[in-house]
Simulated scan of single mutants.
Amino acid sequence: MTVSGRLSPVEREARTILETEGYRVTPMRPCFVSRYKPVNLMAMRMPDELIYIKLRQTARLPDDPAALAEFCRDDSRLLRTLFPLDTEVFRLKKEIWVRPLSGGFCCFEILPDGMHAVTHDRSHKSTH
């Protein structure tokens, strides 16, 4: 399911952030005929961290938490369905990184019953 082909500018930017944090990053291939990617990147940091990351772009980040949850609803549901459990080897995380046109990322970890903001590289905008 991984691919070594071209990355979009947003995927490259996210990969750079993760690599500076010590993650080994693998781009993911589209899984459906429509070329939709349920996950853009898989990031692993030894000894036990694994993150599946869905990247989204938007003109403007929703201000209201309910609007943000609605914006991420379908991706959140898909991530919970595709990657439901931790493994004995890895702490599995699922995240959606939203990039507004103004730049930077706002990162959210997907939990069984919702989502919460997480921070990655501090030199980038990454919380809401």
Rank of each mutant, 00 (worst) to 15 (best):
4 S>R: 11
5 G>P: 10
6 R>G: 11
6 R>V: 14
7 L>N: 09
7 L>D: 08
9 P>R: 12
10 V>M: 13
10 V>Y: 15
12 R>F: 13
13 E>A: 09
13 E>P: 06
15 R>P: 08
17 I>W: 01
18 L>A: 01
19 E>T: 07
20 T>P: 05
21 E>M: 10
21 E>V: 06
22 G>V: 08
22 G>N: 04
22 G>E: 04
23 Y>K: 05
23 Y>G: 05
24 R>L: 13
26 T>R: 15
28 M>W: 15
29 R>C: 10
30 P>I: 09
32 F>W: 09
33 V>R: 12
33 V>C: 07
34 S>Y: 08
35 R>V: 12
36 Y>T: 11
36 Y>V: 13
37 K>A: 09
38 P>G: 05
39 V>S: 05
39 V>D: 03
40 N>Y: 12
40 N>I: 00
41 L>M: 04
41 L>D: 03
41 L>S: 03
43 A>Q: 05
44 M>A: 09
45 R>E: 08
45 R>K: 15
47 P>C: 05
48 D>H: 13
48 D>A: 09
50 L>P: 02
50 L>F: 12
50 L>A: 07
51 I>G: 02
51 I>D: 07
51 I>W: 12
53 I>E: 01
53 I>C: 02
54 K>T: 00
55 L>R: 02
55 L>V: 00
56 R>H: 05
56 R>Q: 04
56 R>T: 01
56 R>C: 02
58 T>A: 02
58 T>E: 01
59 A>E: 08
59 A>C: 10
60 R>A: 13
62 P>E: 04
62 P>D: 06
62 P>A: 12
63 D>T: 13
64 D>G: 03
65 P>E: 00
65 P>C: 00
66 A>G: 07
66 A>I: 03
67 A>C: 10
68 L>Y: 03
68 L>W: 01
71 F>T: 03
75 D>V: 00
76 S>P: 03
79 L>Q: 04
79 L>D: 01
80 R>N: 11
80 R>S: 09
80 R>A: 07
82 L>Y: 15
82 L>C: 14
83 F>E: 04
84 P>R: 13
84 P>F: 11
85 L>T: 14
87 T>L: 08
87 T>W: 12
88 E>V: 14
89 V>E: 08
91 R>N: 05
91 R>W: 14
92 L>A: 03
94 K>I: 00
95 E>Y: 02
96 I>S: 01
99 R>F: 01
100 P>N: 10
101 L>W: 15
101 L>Y: 15
102 S>P: 05
102 S>Q: 15
103 G>Y: 15
103 G>V: 11
104 G>R: 14
106 C>P: 12
107 C>V: 15
108 F>N: 12
109 E>Q: 14
110 I>P: 08
112 P>C: 06
112 P>G: 06
113 D>Q: 02
115 M>R: 00
116 H>Q: 06
120 H>K: 11
121 D>P: 03
121 D>Q: 14
122 R>P: 05
123 S>F: 03
124 H>N: 11
124 H>W: 07
124 H>L: 07
126 S>H: 04
128 H>E: 03
128 H>Y: 02
